[in-house]
């Protein structure tokens, strides 16, 4: 991993062995387990995985954006332009949110306050982070609504959320997220609630905005099609851990981890013909309250041996055919040769 440097040179956002423990009345569960990744300015990192794999929690949890009734604590480090932002007090965190980091949420209907007009909600963020006057902030908000492709932004400024379509609300949510001119944008399943044509438009919008502003984009999704069209890097999550991480081309083109292969194989292929049955990954992700030692995917893995259940595999860099960077956390490494010394692997395993 590269040493933290000044903004621009190093990664914009970097997670190092980041963990979240969730506390319920009965027990504590590690729902995010030593996750590491980084994203540089202008780069797009896609975090993929099934529902419940911890992809949303591992990102929004960094900034305390989990529901208020969730009690949890964090471990490891998350560096925003080299500065550790974990465990900051509310007031410090509030300074970062909106101004350095923007977030686009999954469900655009519930994301806006239903009692307030959309435009002023955006203007409020502009005013708070850019220090503009009320009138200027209003103008800026109208401008933003136009930039995200909302027709007649001046009229739409005064609309309530329920007066907008789903796609329009999602665009407005993008405007809200970039209102404070952040350097990092986190998009949590931004296209899930939209129909297919609107999805494509929104992805195009995200790409344009990212290019214009040189944003580091963290995209949380379970849609491999979205990943393929926009990601530079991919982190595949399973049961709270990153199981494969690397360049999009390498991971998508030549996945190492059996889970990644399974995810890619389960994409419905229109050319396969209607007779062909859908290929699905058998089984369900494990209950995180019950996982023990060993590989968490072992139960669903075709290649698993008894020894896979002994110790948790860690991410190990791989020798790729393309020369790209790729790492996977599997004892078997079915498709690639690990770069780490065999002794070291044994040491981890012992």
């Amino acid at each position: 991993m590269t040493a933290p440097a000044t903004a621009g040179a190093g990664p914009a956002l970097e997670a190092r062995d980041f963990s979240i423990r969730l506390h319920t009345r009965a027990q504590s569960i590690t729902i995010v387990d030593e996750v590491s990744w980084s994203v540089a300015p202008g780069e797009t990192l896609a975090i993929v995985g099934e529902s419940g794999s911890g992809k949303t929690v591992s990102t929004l949890g960094i900034f305390g954006l989990l529901p208020a009734n969730v009690a949890c604590d964090t471990g490891g480090q998350v560096l925003l332009h080299g500065r550790d932002v974990l465990g900051l007090p509310d007031t410090e965190r509030a300074k970062i949110l909106g101004s350095d980091v923007g977030v686009i949420f999954q469900d655009p209907l519930t994301a806006f306050n239903p009692m307030r007009r959309v435009g002023p909600q955006i203007a409020r963020s502009v005013q708070a982070h850019l220090g503009l006057s009320t009138a200027d902030a209003r103008e800026r908000a109208v401008e933003l609504l136009g930039q995200v492709g909302i027709a007649d932004p001046r009229a739409r400024y005064a609309a309530y959320p329920h007066e907008m379509s789903g796609g329009m609300r999602q665009r407005a949510l993008v405007a809200l997220a970039i209102a404070g001119e952040p350097t990092v944008l986190i998009a949590d399943e931004p296209t899930t609630a939209l129909d297919v044509t609107t999805q494509a438009q929104l992805l195009e919008l995200l790409r344009t905005i990212q290019a214009e502003r040189g944003l580091a984009l963290v995209l949380i999704t379970h849609d491999m099609g979205v990943v393929a069209s926009i990601a530079d890097k991919i982190a595949v999550m399973y049961a709270g851990r990153v199981v494969e991480y690397g360049d999009a081309v390498s991971v998508l083109g030549d996945p190492d981890h059996p889970y990644t292969s399974g995810l890619l194989a389960s994409i419905a292929d229109a050319r396969a013909g209607a007779k062909e049955p859908f290929r699905v990954l058998p089984g369900l992700p494990p209950d995180l309250a019950r996982v023990g030692e060993g590989c968490r995917f072992a139960d669903r893995c075709e290649l698993a041996e008894a020894s896979c259940a002994d110790l948790v595999p860690v991410l190990v860099p791989l020798r790729t055919r393309t020369g790209g960077r790729q790492a996977s956390a599997c004892w078997k490494h079915p498709r690639h040769e690990p770069l780490t010394e065999p002794d070291e692997q044994k040491a981890v395993r012992a």
Binding site: F63, V103, T110, A128, A177
Partner: peptide
Amino acid sequence: QYVITSRSVGA
């Protein structure tokens, strides 16, 4: 969710 959104822009 709107409360989380509000917090996400620094409120």
